[in-house]
Design a protein around this nucleic acid. Structure first.
Length: 761
DNA sequence: CAGTGAGCGAGCTTCCGCTTGACTT
């Protein structure tokens, strides 16, 4: 029996378990905990505030199978080794494993690289679980729970049920809201910029710009006229060498940013595709904030680069991770095998891999060498500047060619004459700060040290799922820019159209988002302060070092926080929801209010306490709670509008849950927002007819008496009776399904799951 | 897809960070 007793090693991920297992002999069994196995209960606070904030841990349903199978392994094992990550969370997982599995004397090991040597050396140097590090994690967990579970219910009461607030998501929201306000108050200033093209005696062209900006069109015109027919010379020529260095390999955040910038991936999509690449063994772990690269990768990269491009293209580089607390046990995101130049998988996997491969390789390559040229071209009064840049040695740019852009200038000499071919004075407008994209918001959160690699994507999803933030769809509006052109001594004026304010894919706060953010900022300034997390981190570090007790830290935070919570409870719903009276209905004399309702912002005629029930309508399209006028509100309250009649039935226009629509009998058709008050009977009939046809197109077959239909859905054809859906069995054709088959399939189909709330994956 | 909104009141919602699958109308 003795010699069958084995050593059980527990790590966090099954993938890691497999790798480590291959390094160790058969006397080792390596299993995975799949992350945390204990947590605070989901449906209650789970923190005993009277007893030193004692956390009430439990094993979530999801983790129970893992725990019971690990328990069995523990029983069989002679020794148990806890090899979870060496950070706060990893130490806590080790602690919970010990508690939940009842391990008597676990050996705690950490390693900084997954190699045979590193693991063996770690196994020879076990230590105990670091209680101080565990305490730091408990403090973090309890703090987040207190903040999240005390703020959210306040929002349910004061604004709307089901809302949420938390240390990370509320700051993300605040960033988006504040950016939007900056944009709204931004005053765009116009000025004129002058650019000119010059010709050398050999007829080569040089583009140059005037550094100074001109404030008015008049000034621009005067300048252009004044330089016409004057002599220009090269008055300055300066050449200087420069180098360009490759960027460090990808972390989660930088990968999300580049995938968004170059390929338009959402952060969610990037993570999903990266997960595929990771699971198929093509890249290293994708949730990391480390730019560290393993020694074996450095060697492999050197070989590949030398072979492919030559020795002079290689330069070994080690990058230091700036994020505090980042652990070098994790690596940057990189290919696992440099010999694999193209990934297996779908098109998106190939694209993302290509990005990862190029960045990782470039990070180990020589700097590019450039030659920069600065030229001044002057007529004695006005001086234009031109810049050139040529690459003298490509270096890493070979691996990431998109980053290279040359501006080639013709050969020039100081003093040589330049002929002014054309000059343009173009009106430009100062631009407001850009709205965040998912990726730039992640970058900002990371810079502020808020959130972790594993939470960026879920956080971005949460603020959208709660409808605090929406992605813009606007293509922007056209604006006229005035352009003065000087050609052959003549100044002419034309106007050019340019797009401005495009917000496609940009994050825009909703009215609800602004109201929630305002409420939190006003009442919980400290929690949504951008430096709050950074300060918390400092204290957690103190706890990890044993210089501060975690209960003391929580207790001192909670004292002030609780006061704020009590005070915020006194805020009225009207105030929190920013209810506003915008005027009086001239017909009834009742007040007209703007407020946030259960389904979004709305206008209301009369008050709840009035004898007559108030009347409601959604906010008019393209208005906000701030700028809606009484007139617009009254128009909305006058709906529904009868457009006309088809036979005996009325055609009605109204605004509902999914926007403006026209209705005839049971048929509804959406219409553009601008048309609610102007749509004619003819137009309405047309829209309704089209809708009918569309519906017919989805219908494959119908058993009208039974109320069963077979429809074409997003995932192919399916059977529905309105409440339950059933799949078409494999091998069957949707058209051939009989009534009996359909009924059987429906009765066997699982009941529709309770409408799942949208949750961050 | 389906076209709401008071208030009454029970019972529900909610956090961040660590990890994978299950499953989609």
């Amino acid at each position: 029996m003795e010699n069958t007793m084995k050593t059980l090693v527990i790590v966090e991920s099954p993938k890691k378990a497999k790798t480590i297992s291959s390094f160790l002999g058969s006397e080792y069994v390596v299993e995975s905990s799949y992350g945390h196995i204990r947590d605070l209960p989901k449906s209650k606070l789970g923190v005993d505030k009277e007893k030193g904030f004692e956390p009430q841990y439990e094993i979530p349903e999801k983790a129970k199978p893992v725990v019971s199978s690990l328990k069995k392994e523990v029983k069989k094992a002679e020794t148990v080794v806890l090899a979870t990550d060496g950070d706060r969370e990893g130490e806590a997982i080790a602690f919970h494993l010990k508690e939940a599995l009842g391990i008597k004397q676990p050996k705690r090991i950490i390693f900084h690289e997954i190699t045979k040597e590193a693991i063996q050396s770690a196994l020879e140097n076990p230590r105990d679980i670091d209680e101080k590090l565990v305490n730091a994690q408990q403090a973090r967990r309890v703090l987040d729970r207190l903040v999240g579970y005390e703020l959210s219910p306040l929002l349910w009461k004061k604004v709307r049920p089901g809302l949420s607030a938390g240390r990370v998501q509320s700051v993300a929201l605040r960033l988006v809201v504040e950016r939007e306000r900056e944009i709204k108050t931004f005053d765009s200033l116009a000025s004129f910029r002058v650019a000119a093209s010059f010709l050398t005696d050999k007829n080569k062209e040089v583009q140059a710009e005037l550094l100074e900006k001109l404030n008015t069109e008049e000034q621009a015109k005067t300048l252009l006229s004044s330089i016409a027919n004057t002599l220009f010379h090269v008055t300055g020529l300066e050449q200087s060498p420069a180098t360009k260095n490759p960027l460090p390999p990808f972390t989660t955040s930088t990968l999300q940013q580049e995938a968004s910038r170059l390929m338009g991936f959402s952060v969610k999509l990037t993570m999903r595709v990266a997960q595929q690449l990771y699971e198929s063994g093509q890249i290293t772990y994708m949730r990391t904030d480390s730019v560290n690269l393993s020694e074996s990768f450095l060697k492999a990269a050197e070989q590949t680069i030398t072979k492919k491009y030559g020795k002079e293209y290689h330069q070994s580089r080690r990058y230091a991770t700036k994020t505090k607390g980042a652990q070098e046990a994790h690596e940057a995101i990189r290919p696992t095998d440099m010999a694999r130049e193209v990934a297996s998988g779908d098109e998106r996997a190939k694209k993302l891999y290509n990005l990862i491969y190029g960045r990782a390789m470039a990070s180990q390559m020589a700097s590019a060498r450039l030659e920069r040229t600065k030229v001044e071209i002057s007529n004695g009064t006005h001086t234009f500047h031109a810049k050139g840049e040529i690459i003298t040695f490509e270096g890493f740019l070979k691996a990431v060619p998109k980053q290279a852009k040359e501006i080639v200038l013709p050969l020039l000499k100081t003093g040589q004459e330049m002929i002014l071919k054309e000059a343009l004075a173009r009106q430009t407008f100062t631009r407001p700060p850009a709205r965040y994209t998912e990726a730039t918001l992640v970058r900002t959160l990371e810079e502020k040290g808020i959130g972790r690699p594993s939470t960026y994507a879920p956080t971005i999803s949460t603020i959208q799922d709660r409808t605090y933030v929406e992605k813009g769809e606007g293509e922007g509006i056209e604006r006229e820019a005035r352009v003065l052109t000087l050609q052959k001594g003549e100044v002419t004026l034309k106007t050019e159209l340019e797009k401005t304010g495009a917000d496609k894919g940009k994050l825009i706060p909703t009215e609800l988002g602004m109201i929630v953010s305002d409420f939190l900022t006003k009442n919980f300034e400290k929690v949504v302060d951008y430096t709050f997390t950074a300060n918390v981190e400092k204290e957690l570090d103190e706890i990890a070092l044993g210089k501060e007790g975690w209960r003391e830290m929580i207790s001192s935070f909670y004292k002030d926080f609780q006061k704020d919570v009590e005070e915020a409870k006194q805020v009225s719903r009207e105030e929190a929801g920013q209810t506003r009276e915008i005027g009086e209905d001239p017909v009834t004399g009742r007040p007209v209010l703007v407020r946030i309702g259960r389904y979004g912002p709305m206008v209301q005629l009369g008050k709840a306490e009035d004898e007559e029930k108030p009347k409601f309508a959604p906010l008019p399209p393209n208005t906000t709670m701030e700028n809606v006028t009484l007139e617009q509100a009254l128009a909305m309250l006058s709906l529904p509008r009868t457009i006309g009649k088809v036979g005996a039935e009325e055609v009605v226009a109204n605004v509902g849950r999914f926007g403006p629509y026209v209705k005839l009998g049971k048929t509804y058709a959406s219409i553009p927002a601008a048309n609610i008050f102007s749509i004619t009977l003819e137009e309405a009939k047309e829209a309704l007819e089209k809708k009918k046809e569309e519906k017919a197109g989805r219908l494959i077959k119908e058993f009208a008496e039974e109320g069963i239909s077979i429809l074409n859905g997003r995932f192919g054809p399916y059977i529905t009776d309105g409440s339950k859906n059933a799949k078409i069995p494999k091998g069957e054709k949707a058209e051939d399904i009989t009534k009996e088959q359909a009924q059987n399939l429906l009765s066997e189909a699982p009941a529709r799951r309770a409408r799942r709330r949208k949750r961050a994956s």
